[in-house]
């Protein structure tokens, strides 16, 4: 299989499209009246990321990044938990991963196809490569920093499930 040179993400997607997708997702998945506001706030000292890879004519990942406490609050909102019910770490990773998954699925649909979506992953965000292959919306939810990044694959980023450790 030969690899085709795909246009960078900035030629395929703009922040306004990412925002419009988030505008659909937040009220239905995070909760009534909830919104991702595209106004940056100070980034947190510690962050956690969830992402899904997109493999096709364009290769990269859709990454959601926030503070661990924001991820926990997102999980509580998604699951509609009320005190004294608490979410555990598995629920937090699951909820953040599903948000990244739904963002990724919808972003994939506006990129050239055919392409496939990887399974959600959680941890430290993959490194970004070329500056023109990154589309980022720095925003906030309930006043806390939240960033959506659509970034091209670097050598360190491969679609999940395609590598076999030697």
């Amino acid at each position: 299989m030969t690899l085709q040179e795909a246009p960078p993400i900035t030629a395929l997607l703009d922040p306004a499209t990412v925002q419009s997708i988030a505008d659909e997702i937040w009220p239905t998945l995070v909760g009534d009246g909830e919104a991702f506001v595209p106004v940056p706030v100070a980034p947190p000292a510690e962050v956690v990321s969830a992402w899904v890879t997109i493999s096709g004519p364009w290769n990269g990942a859709v990454v959601l990044t926030c503070a661990p406490a924001t991820a926990e609050a997102l999980a509580e909102s998604v699951l509609m938990t009320r005190p004294p019910t608490v979410v555990d770490d598995e629920d937090v990773a699951d909820a953040l991963g599903e948000l990244a998954n739904v963002l990724g699925g919808n972003i994939k649909s506006v990129l050239p196809g055919p392409s496939s979506l990887g399974l959600p992953q959680i941890g430290s965000a993959p490194t970004t490569g070329r500056l023109d292959d990154v589309c980022r919306v720095n925003g906030q939810w309930r006043g806390q920093s939240l960033t959506i990044t659509v970034q091209g694959a670097t050598e360190a980023l491969h679609p999940s499930g395609t590598e076999v450790p030697q």
Binding site: E24, I25, T28, L29, N101, V102, G104, G105, N106, K108, S109, G113, P114, L117
Partner: peptide, 25 residues
């Protein structure tokens, strides 16, 4: 599913699915 492209809807229908609901719903 989080993806609702026309290709996926066609593939789903050809395999015998009754519908495809795209997330968010």
């Amino acid at each position: 599913t989080s993806e609702g492209s026309p290709e996926m809807r066609e593939k789903a229908a050809n395999a015998g699915a009754l519908f495809l609901i795209a997330k968010p719903f």
